[in-house]
Write a protein that binds this DNA or RNA. Sequence first.
DNA 1: CGACTTATGATGACACATCAACAAACTGCC
DNA 2: GGCAGTTTGTTGATGTGTCATCATAAGTCG
Lengths: 153, 153
Amino acid sequence: MPRWLDDRESRVWRAYLALHTELHAVLERELAADSGLSLADYALLVPLSESPGGVVRARDLAVSVGWERSRLSHHLTRMQGRGLVVRETCPEDARGSMVRITPEGMATITAAAPSHVATVRRTFIDPLTEADLTALDDIYSRLRAALVEESEL
Amino acid sequence: MPRWLDDRESRVWRAYLALHTELHAVLERELAADSGLSLADYALLVPLSESPGGVVRARDLAVSVGWERSRLSHHLTRMQGRGLVVRETCPEDARGSMVRITPEGMATITAAAPSHVATVRRTFIDPLTEADLTALDDIYSRLRAALVEESEL
DNA sequence: CGACTTATGATGACACATCAACAAACTGCC
DNA sequence: GGCAGTTTGTTGATGTGTCATCATAAGTCG
């Protein structure tokens, strides 16, 4: 016998779902039109471009974007085909695989970032007040902590 | 020359992205294990099951879940193949297509809902305080309003 | 050392999402 | 009525995500 969601809870939950659907669509479209990248491409290129040397071990990359290894492997295969990244052998662990961003990949995300950030600002950050940002910072970290517990059961 | 995200803005944005990735994965997995439904199936079955008669016009269904028509059409084809819904002709508009939830579809979502709601509660609603809910209710409606403006440009 | 377990990453099959193109039918204006 | 433009829904191609499975290599412990 579950406790149902009351009106406000249900409204917040459905608003969250709808918000994500719409936000995702807008960002995906803008990024693709502007640079030919998908949000998934962008998500991978960010940690790669921020890493010193532009090289990250696949395992660590999976952790930093929160993906399953299979998804990462498939996506890297496609990105490698487009010349955005290359795979190299891992010196410390023969099972491992190092992922390196190519100069072309770096140029692509460098060119894409300003417009993408502007869209994030326009659609997400700018409508928020200082108090909203403070509240979300707290709320999101609490929710993520709850999810970590969840997965540790 | 874009205005970059400061530390807190960036943290909130990345937390939002990571939260969604994790939350989506947990809910998808739980729902699939429990009932064989995907979140997409569930999203469609909710408005169908809530509609009097269990029939909704495809166009309206697309609006209420925020999907493109193509996605809806493909997904309905698969759901119809699994016996969750059927398509019927639309009496008022010969182009149209009415979507009807089957008794099996109704039974499936009825069985799935309690456990799914419990997971939503555990991972999203319960970690929030009353003040959080009030804040999110306000923030999400403001963000969605901003997105509507965005798409009207 | 040697058997067992775990970690890492790749792969094939399948479900899903997006895009462009299409056919059919409604709308409105002349 | 008739034509232009729009709306509705479907389809096929292609890119993407998930699952189960696999091969290889590390780690663990007798």
